[in-house]
């Protein structure tokens, strides 16, 4: 991924159609967007608007039907096919956080973060100390040895954020990360994303229904029926 460009994401004319013929459903219709490095962006919209589908396309999990995805200056998808080794690209440049933390249940908080580093061939000892640093940064260092089942929802999400941050990604994609948390903890997580975006320089795109925490974001984008609404509000930092 090029370090020179200021854009973390540049998506052009993205379309996604599920099914064929008369049963075809057009989930995403000609969506173009950009997210800059260090920017925290909220992706809003009602259920079924296509937010999660857009997120999976930007995260190279689901291929778009049409369009182009450039991540950090590298063309990742174009002309109907991926242009990079998606698994390696995800491992090295992308981070994911979901509604559920999706931590590996048989690994401790520390090991969950450590695993993300080891997948990128970081040596075990180095991965362990870096994972500990991240947990400390996110305020869950004292829970490092605990299994996910012994952590609260908020703690689990912090560990998930630490895991997403492990490899210094250019882009973090978060799909309703606060949906399972109460408003106080939800806001804490959103503020955490802001800290991460501004301090680590990663772009963070967050799908959310929670309008109460919108003031935390740099910008919000709204989707409806698979399209971006034209008048997206730009929020002051």
């Amino acid at each position: 991924m090029s370090a020179g460009t200021a854009l973390a994401v540049e998506a052009t004319g993205l379309c996604k159609t599920f099914g064929k013929g008369h049963t075809a459903v057009e989930a995403i219709r000609d969506v173009s967007l950009t997210v800059a490095r260090g920017e925290l962006v909220a992706l809003l919209g009602p259920s079924g608007a296509g937010k999660s589908t857009l997120l999976t396309m930007l995260g190279l999990i689901v291929p778009p039907s049409r369009g182009r995805v450039v991540l950090g200056g590298t063309t990742a998808f174009h002309g109907g096919r991926f242009r990079v080794n998606v698994r390696r690209f995800r491992r090295e440049h992308l981070g994911f956080v979901f509604q559920k933390a999706n931590l590996i249940p048989f690994l401790s908080a520390l090991e969950n973060v450590q695993l993300a580093l080891e997948l990128s061939d970081v040596a075990t000892r180095r991965a362990r100390s870096r994972a500990m640093e991240l947990l400390d940064y996110l305020g869950v260092a004292e829970r490092a040895r605990h299994l996910p089942s012994k952590l609260s929802g908020g703690e689990q999400q912090r560990v998930a954020v630490a895991r997403a941050l492990a490899n210094g990604p250019n882009l973090i994609l978060a799909d309703e990360p606060t949906a399972a948390l109460d408003s106080v903890r939800g806001r804490q997580v959103m503020e955490l994303f802001r800290t991460v975006a501004h301090e680590q320089g990663s772009a963070v795109l967050v799908v959310t229904h929670d309008h109460r925490a919108l003031d935390v974001f740099d910008r919000s984008i709204e989707m409806e029926d698979g399209r971006l609404r034209p008048a997206a509000a730009v929020l002051a930092r």
């Binding site: 690209f89 491992r91 994911f96 590996i104 997948l119």
Partner: peptide, 11 residues
């Protein structure tokens, strides 16, 4: 968990 590992880029 395997799906998550794949998402994280596990070989």
């Amino acid at each position: 968990d395997i799906a998550m590992l794949k998402l994280m880029g596990a070989r």
